[in-house]
Amino acid sequence: MGTQKTINSLQVFLTEVGDISYFAGRFFTDVFKRPFEFKEFLRQCYNMGNRSLLLVGVTGFIIGLVFTLQSRPTLQEFGAVAWMPSMVGISIIREIGPIITALICAGRIGSGIGAELGSMRVTEQIDAMEVSGTNPFKYLVITRILATTFMLPILVIIGDAIALYGSYLVENIKGDVSFQLYFSEVFSSLEFGDVIPSTIKSFFFGFAIGLVGCYKGYNCDKGTEGVGLAANSAVVYTSLLLFVIDFVAVLVADLFYEL
């Protein structure tokens, strides 16, 4: 019984992974085919980029603030408060900024896509598009995946900047560090080996959020329950996938840039 159950769940898991891979494959074959739904792409960019900005900004700001406040006492004990900008800079740019932003977006954008496409599937809007001669995969899925892929890195960069600003505020108030000193310290400790991999990683994060959200919504089960499930599992699967990508990205970055 136990092994049968394991085999079954393994089968379900593998089917899911296979389906997502197939879905991603369809994305890559269709993305270069005409016609391009450029207007819809822009609309989605606006929805995902601008509309997430406030959330990402507030989160980034608080993370920068809290991170600095939390690590300050420890550094103070070592008499190394002067290292704060470098430490905060490196950890935010390399890891915290991308992963926090991506998780926030998985919650906001991923579930949004899952629910939107799911309800469109349930209410036959996707069928209606198909029937009216518009390829819904191109119109709905490709635009969304592209939008998340391109918007997430920008959100990450802005989130990083805001987080660093939050950290600077703490340093400024507690340690009387000037704006110029803080940021020149931050940038003197950073290298391209920090910025480039984390930016590339952000593209993959964005792609994962769009892909899983669209997959879950597009293949939603009929019924209201299906929509909720699609939105929910989009977030769960995306969050998991984000950490896997993060892990792989660190390994790969390690190969290219010596740490």
Partner: peptide, 11 residues
């Protein structure tokens, strides 16, 4: 094709 639930695009 007129769909059962009208299937108007909500957005």
């Amino acid at each position: 094709f007129l769909f059962q639930g009208s299937a108007l695009y909500d957005s």
